[in-house]
Amino acid sequence: MFRLRTHSTDPVTFSFEGRRLTASRGDTIAAALLGSGVFIFRNSPVSSSPRAPFCMIGNCYECFVRVEAMGVVQACLTEITEGMKISKVSNLIDESETGIKESSKR
């Protein structure tokens, strides 16, 4: 997709799905991931089809990722910061977040 970023004058370290990666300070999360060769950001909640950034200006909402302590964010509008732990969004909200779980239906 994009040429991998080989060096950076002002690097930031972060992780995606447990993988340690680096980006340049000031990058958006989307740029940081695409520059590190990450292709799939999430799976759609309708059919689980894989998705990745499409418009990069905050309009298509395809680039949702989960950031520890922040929740689900738009990767194209959020700046990467040192130590950020990012993961794929398979479902927009996971159980630990709402705490509403399936209860026995009668």
Binding site: A30, A31, F41, A52, P53, F54, I57
Partner: peptide
């Protein structure tokens, strides 16, 4: 499909990163 994006998106990535 991932890998399809807009020209504007790619240009944004070029300018900002």
């Amino acid at each position: 499909l991932p890998g399809v994006m807009t020209v504007g998106a790619a240009q944004t990535l070029l300018k900002s990163s």
